[in-house]
Amino acid sequence: MAAFIIKRLIQSIFVMLAVSLLAFALFRFVGDPVAVMVGQETSVEDQERLREQLGLNDPVVVQYTRFVGSLVRGDFGFSYRTRQPIGEMILERMPATLELGIVSLLISLSVGIPAGIYTALRNDGVLANAILVVTLVGVSIPTFVIGIFLIYLFGVQLGWLPTFGRGDVVEIGWWKTNFLSLGGLRALILPAITLGVYQLTLTMRMVRSEMQDVMNTDFIKFAIARGIDYRTVHYRHALRNSMVPVITIIGLQFGGIIAFSIVTESVFQWPGMGLLFLDSIRYVDIPVMSVYLVIIALIFVIINLTVDILYFIIDPRVRLKAEGS
């Protein structure tokens, strides 16, 4: 197991280096940082001095090494727009995005997996078909339309739930959480559903098709022929085998939820990283954009590693093969 994880970690380092190279390339090739930083009346000499101070005249390799070095030390530099340290800006925003992502993942799993099992086992049922049709509609409508529709229905017409912002948050150290106050939880509902609908459908359809495949395998037929009761066949034998491929998809989805919560955050004015990224694009705030890129890549890498380890726990074939080598 240790060798397996070390191997994965080494691979991850290479992935991160590649991404940081991309992020670095953003600096070099999207606009001139000095031109963005200075005002119109700054003299050419001043600009040149600034360029020298910032090390922009050094060879590319030196600059890249410096860039990676400061990233590793946690020094992310300053935003062009707000002049704040980027590390602080991201830390301030990250809890909002993570909480939104986790809640929508939980919604998609807690509804998607049971619905997938149900529709797999009751293939011809009226309810199963109804679920399939409804979720097909759900996946066909773009996220922002669903968001706007939910705002219109529950926020404007019924007035039950808040339609923007995080509501009341409780501070635990630097982490501001929505989970500990009623207002915070209420504010979380609509954006989490909006973000989760697509993932929910995907999870459900994956679980359904995997489960149907597994139900047709010999070992399930054999289990039924041995008279094992159907509950055990479905949940102990079939579900576990179906989950092996589903976990990969769920892992990738969670990365996607965090990285691409931009649309939802913008519809609900959710003060998370997505909204920060959107503002940065608007003001060509290149340092923030490149750090965002690196952080999202890091999140993906961590999730992939987790998925690999989960595989390891679930599937004895992977586990024993790795131990054997």
Binding site: T217, D218, F219, R236, R240, N241, P316
Partner: peptide
Amino acid sequence: QTSLNPLLT
């Protein structure tokens, strides 16, 4: 090869 559940001992 296929008539035993691969995830259970």
